[in-house]
Simulated scan of single mutants.
Amino acid sequence: MENDNLNKLWDIQTNDISNFNPKEIITKAKKQRNSQYISITVMSLTVMVLMIYAFYYAFSQWNTFNLGLILMISSLTLRIFLEFYSLYRKEKQLISMAQKAYRSYLKKYYKARQMINFVITPICIAVYIVGFYLLLPYFKDYFSKGFYTYILISGFLSLTFVIIIIIKNIIKEQSFLRQLHK
């Protein structure tokens, strides 16, 4: 994405219908894109660790432990796919649209993101939690009581931390959507 080309395209237009200038919109888009990259990276690393563990240790026989791993991996993979699709679609539109059309597109984009944020993400989190819950009896049987307690505490703290990050990003997206409607 070339900022100069985008600025030239938007500067040509005479009717400015928004409170944002092109640089502000580009800055906001970059910040949101960077937060999406961070989310994708964290989720991808988690999926890689789970997959390595699953293929190296878990799939020798089928049981609820394997089901738990598959639920965790699939929920994160779906979320990663949605983030990549959303990110790519937005960048593709950013390059090809004029300011007025892009502002209208952003409104539609963030409304579609609401579906991801308020429906799909909670389902993914619930599936992930169910998967983690299915792993707990195996952890309890195979690990010491201290390490099992560590897994419980770190698992819930990690999940809480991720949920806080997700909520923070949802609030930012909602705020940006409200600003677009002004």
Score class of each variant (00 low, 15 high):
Y37K: 07
I166N: 05
F139A: 05
I171L: 11
N5C: 14
Y110N: 07
N66M: 09
M97D: 03
I165D: 07
I153W: 01
F156L: 08
A98C: 13
N19V: 14
K8G: 03
L87S: 09
T64M: 13
M43W: 10
D141F: 10
F81T: 11
L67P: 07
L6R: 04
R79I: 14
T14E: 06
I80Q: 00
L50Q: 00
K8L: 10
V162N: 11
I151C: 02
I129Y: 07
H181T: 12
D16W: 12
R79T: 15
A112G: 14
S74K: 02
L69H: 00
L6I: 12
L136Q: 08
G131M: 00
G155D: 02
N21E: 09
M51F: 13
I163L: 05
R113Y: 11
A29L: 15
L177S: 02
M1G: 09
T160W: 05
I40V: 04
N117A: 08
K28Y: 10
K111P: 04
Q93I: 06
V119R: 09
F59Q: 09
T27L: 15
Q114T: 12
F65M: 07
L45T: 03
I120C: 03
D16H: 11
N7P: 02
L159I: 01
Y102G: 01
I129R: 04
K100N: 11
W10P: 01
F143T: 10
A29C: 14
